[in-house]
Amino acid sequence: MDQILLNIVFWFGIYAIVSISLNIEYGLAGIPNFGRALAVLFGAFTVGGIVNRFFIAIYGIEGEIIDSSAVLKTILNQKIAEDPSFGILLLLLYISLAAAVGAIIGALAILPSARLSRDYLAITLLAISEVFFMVFNYNTTLGGGYYGISVPDVFAFYSGNRQLLFAILSLLILVLIYILAERLSNSPFGRLLRAMREDEDVVKAFGRNLMILRIKTSAIASSIAAISGALFSLFTANFIASNFTRVEWTFYPFLILLLGGSGNNKGVLLGTLVFVTVKQLLTVYKHEIVEFFMIPFQTVWIEYIAFGSLMLFVLFYRPEGLIKERPVITRRVKYGKGPVVNPK
């Protein structure tokens, strides 16, 4: 039971981070990023494919990336076990580098369609994400393909339950990102993004460049999404491209966002909690479900049908989500007094 709870907490952190990133991009700015999985994939790839290569070069390990990273893993794990501070430093390196790579990928991916209408944006981002997913999936020299690449355990110094540490870590990062996202959405930039969502022409008329705004937003959001990919990769201690499917990392975040309430971060947290709990329970009790209903196929297909139907249900009956987006609260300074909250 504790294990299930820890799993829920960890997945809550991961999915809340991705969904907050999508909330900035879609909820605030109205960019339908149907290729959210791309930034997550690259975040994970940074851990397995970029930082690993760097250390392999330092240690001068020979061989293919799949074999040499397995050797590297044993070396680094031992080093971390001896010196916990090295592990923490490594963790910070992984996460900050993943954020940087995510920002670059996000900005590049939106470039071809940044000046076009939303349907073109959605199509192009989805196509780019699908093609990269396929390339990483097949190519064994780039990122290990379907065999995957081993990733060192940054908590190798801790002999107890590492799931507990990862649950705490994901919550910690979530809190930081939540504060960041809240500040962003209440800043002048956040209001500008909302204006762009509601009416692009007005923003244009005020002399703002839509293309630049979109590239900036996508870079910020994708760098956040990449962090969750890195976390996931560190947790599973490997990088396998086939984990980063469109369903799990694009569709589910959209479902969470629309279920919880697009445009507000509290709604995203609530949506994530509901979604992750349901999904974990489905995963844990899948054998019981198969036996009880005597279905002749895998439960993953039922999961697809159920979550797809849930999405339609939300679109039909709860288009504004569980928690509705509220007007932005701005602080105003009165003479001589401190900041006063202005209710509308």
Binding site: D119, V247, L258, Y304, I305
Partner: peptide
């Protein structure tokens, strides 16, 4: 509407898979 077609895609995929 695009998100709705994505959801339809997923439902159909689940159906095909089963």
């Amino acid at each position: 509407l695009m998100i709705a077609t994505l959801a339809l895609d997923l439902i159909l995929l689940g159906f095909i898979g089963s």
